[in-house]
Amino acid sequence: MGDRKAFFYGTLMSRRILFRVIYLNEKADQDPVMSRMADQLTYEPAILHSYGRFKVQGYDYPGIRRAEGYCVRGTYVTGLTDANMAHLDAFEGSQYHLEKVRVGILESAKPLGEEKGEGVSRALEEGQEVEAETYVWNKSDVGLETTEWDFGEFVRDKLQNWVGSSDEYQESDDAHARNEGHDPTGGRGARSDKWKQ
């Protein structure tokens, strides 16, 4: 289990995409061998204040930048290894830099409408503040739209383009290959015979 902690606010909020990048297997949690690695990760909803999440012009993914009056909801993930982060660095490329931030963990509050006996949905309230690493857009406002990026819209309209084989993963796949000998999976995830042994 690794000791790196990250805040994901875009496509990597999808576990399928996260697993594809760090394990080369979008269904790592369902693979009998790989699930042991995937089970080492923990996920919690979180919020990052004073940053805005905006669409990157011409692409399906967002970038964040400092923006007073804004906040970004995302996922706080713990248990990441240095090798996982190297694959994420390659996936994010030169458009982003890794920055340490503080995020608030979102916790369930009392059900909304409980006092009237309606309590179906639950409100989220901010709890403990923790440190994490996150990928921040490198180019200030250049290349970012003024429109905020929406994860639900991405899942509904674009996720199917990102699962399976995609050119989006080429740089992270190359990083896996370069890590041959440093990554316990030999850079190929648990699909390799070497790792299964």
Rank of each mutant, 00 (worst) to 15 (best):
L88K: 06
W162G: 06
K116S: 15
P32W: 02
S121P: 00
D60Q: 01
L18I: 01
E44A: 14
L112G: 05
G93P: 04
K194R: 12
K27M: 11
L80I: 03
E107H: 12
A109F: 05
G152M: 05
L106D: 05
D60T: 02
S94A: 15
Y51D: 06
G143V: 09
Q170N: 05
G104T: 01
E114L: 15
R73K: 14
L106F: 01
V136H: 07
G127V: 06
E126K: 13
A175V: 10
E168H: 13
M1H: 13
I105H: 00
P111Y: 08
G189D: 10
Q170I: 08
G10K: 00
P32G: 05
D89M: 11
E126I: 07
E126N: 06
E115V: 12
A28P: 03
R53L: 13
G181L: 06
A109M: 06
Y76E: 10
A177V: 10
E153D: 14
E92Y: 03
S172Q: 08
P184F: 01
P184S: 03
Y51A: 04
A90C: 11
V103T: 05
I105C: 02
V155H: 00
N138G: 03
Y70N: 15
F154R: 08
K194V: 08
M85N: 07
G187Y: 01
L88P: 08
V21F: 07
A86R: 12
L80D: 02
V163P: 02
V101H: 02
D82V: 08
D89Q: 11
D39F: 07
T81F: 01
Q160Y: 07
T42N: 10
A83N: 15
A38D: 04
M1W: 12
G117Y: 06
S192K: 01
H49G: 08
A6P: 03
S140H: 12
E171C: 10
R122A: 04
K100N: 12
Q170E: 09
K5L: 00
D141N: 10
S121E: 07
F7E: 01
G119F: 06
W137T: 09
P45W: 01
S14L: 14
